[in-house]
Every structure is written in C-alpha cells, then in structure tokens.
Write a protein that binds this DNA or RNA. Structure first.
Length: 275
DNA sequence: CTCAGTGTTCAGTG
DNA sequence: TCACTGAACACTGA
C-alpha cells in the first residue's frame, strides 16, 4: 500500500490521534530488522513525550516530539499504520469490511496516548524501518531524497530540466526517490498512462509538451488519491489502477494492457494510448 | 511448491 | 566519478 497517498493518509491519521497528546506507553516487537533503533532506546525516547505534529516527505513520515530525537517511519512494501477499529486496506483484500484485529498482526510498535488513543505500526514483510533521528529531514535517508512529489513539485521549466537531465527510461526516473520522493510503482504507471507516455521512453527524449503532461498527471494523480484518503475504491473509474492486474484483459475502452519489467519492476501500460 | 509484489540498498557494469 | 541495472532482502498470499 505505501506510496505517497497511503503514507499521507497515515500521516493524517497519526496527527488526528496523537498531535497534542502525550505518549504514556510504548510496546516494541522483538524484531531487530524493522526496529533499526533498539527497543530500549525507542522506549526511552518516546515514553512521556508529547507529540507536536506529524511530518512527511515522500514515503517517510515522522512524529515530531517535544524533545529530540524524533520517531521516523518507513513502511517498506507491506507496512501500515493502524488505530483500533481502523486499518489500512490492502489492494488484494476485496472485502468491504476491513476492520482489523487489535493489536494488528505483525505489529512492530504500539503507542498509547494520554487520552486513551492508540497507534500501531505493523509490517508483515519486514522491509519497513522504524528508527530515531534528531532531525529527520537533514539526515539519511531523507537527506538523499528529491522534491516531495505532492508538496514540492517544481514549476514546469524546472521539472522538465530535472527530467531531461536523466538518461534512464522515464519510468525508472519516476521511481527514483532522489528525483521525486513518494512515487511508487502504481503511481508511476498511472501517471504515465494519463500522460500518454510509454514507460520505456528515455527521460531525456521527452518534448516540452510531454514533460508538461507528465507533470500535470503527476500532480493530478497525487492530489486526487490524497483527497480520496488513499481509498482506492474512491479513485476515478477511468484510472488504470482498477485494471492494472487484470492480466491479459483491457481497459474499459477495450485497449489491451501490457505487463513488462522496466527498472526491475512490473510496469502495466496501454500501448494503444501511450507513445 | 513456486513466484510475484504499491520498496530500498548495494554490488557490478559501462 | 557518474549513472544505471539487477539481485538481495524477508515474507505473505495467490
């Protein structure tokens, strides 16, 4: 789930539950991979702290506390933020009722707030990371990231300059977090589909008009997905998203969807519409 | 049983 | 040195 829209939804949930509240209990899983900062240090840094606000850049988010260091979280491929009675719906779970167990399966960190609110971070596949940072934005891994694809999208001329400076296929550039932070596999495919650009096109070969379409599609897809609270059932019907895994089938207009590996990931695209 | 996956990192290559 | 690619990571669910 976790590309920019999903992480922004998690950020908002965390802010609603925790901002202005004090952390009164901390539970850590015994998982030295996801908990990059050891449990004892996490507990010491978090217990008794007040949460001021919750920040995000690309696919990372962090809890700003009344004392440093702060808590920095990345969801990896399968992580998510949970509160009692509410979960993060997975694409594969077609179920309407998406109530989650409490605590959620694969919980890695649980926080209780002074008003009884609770937050949990869970991660089945363990590619996510939970760690402490004094100043998240200025230290690795955030310091190596490019502009936040939602809040810091450069003006058209600048966007095109950054894009055409790159030799790789445009899909690879979109996925590169040092270019645009927050774009993942489905967002990249959706953006290329809506901009009508084939994923293998070299970034440096894009015309000003194409770069403009790409930028416009990137902004539109992210704004729309974030407005929908990253609930994919609320994404527009015409989005490739709803069809991208219908192997061998087509878009609603009957155009076949092709799947191929580009930049190490499966790209879904529509040759009839993307050049 | 095998394999792909809404991600990132790092070794290897040109 | 830079830029890019692909394997590794770790595990679930199809």
């Amino acid at each position: 789930m976790p590309e920019l829209p999903e992480v922004e939804a998690a950020r908002r949930t965390a802010e609603r539950v925790a901002a202005g509240r004090r952390i009164v209990s901390v539970w850590c899983a015994d998982d030295p991979i996801v908990l990059e900062t050891p449990p004892a240090r996490l507990r010491r840094a978090l217990l008794g702290r007040r949460v001021l606000r919750v920040g995000r850049h690309g696919k990372h988010f962090w809890l700003e506390l009344d004392r440093r260091p702060w808590l920095l979280v990345h969801f990896g491929m399968s992580g998510g933020l949970y509160t009692p009675g509410r979960g993060v719906r997975l694409r594969s779970s077609g179920s309407r009722d998406w109530r989650v167990d409490w605590p959620p399966r694969f919980a890695k960190l649980r926080l209780t707030l002074d008003d009884g609110g609770e937050l949990a971070i869970a991660d089945a596949r363990r590619l996510g990371r939970i760690r402490l940072r004094d100043d998240p934005r200025c230290e690795p891994p955030l310091s190596a990231l490019g502009f936040d694809a939602l809040r810091e999208l450069p003006p058209p001329a600048r966007f095109r300059a950054l894009l055409t400076a790159r030799a790789a296929p445009v899909k690879a550039v979109l996925l590169d977090q040092s270019f645009a932070a927050g774009v993942g596999n489905w967002v990249a495919d959706e953006v290329l589909y809506q901009a009508r650009i084939a994923p293998r096109r070299l970034a440096r070969s894009l015309s000003p008009a194409e770069a403009g379409r790409l930028r416009g599609a990137l902004r539109r897809v992210l704004v729309t997905a974030v407005r929908a609270g990253a609930d994919s059932d609320r994404y527009p019907r015409g989005w490739l998203f709803h069809r991208r895994w219908d192997h061998g089938t087509a878009t609603r207009r009957g155009e076949p969807i092709r799947h191929e590996t580009i930049a190490g990931r499966t790209a879904a695209w529509v040759p009839a519409r993307q050049r």
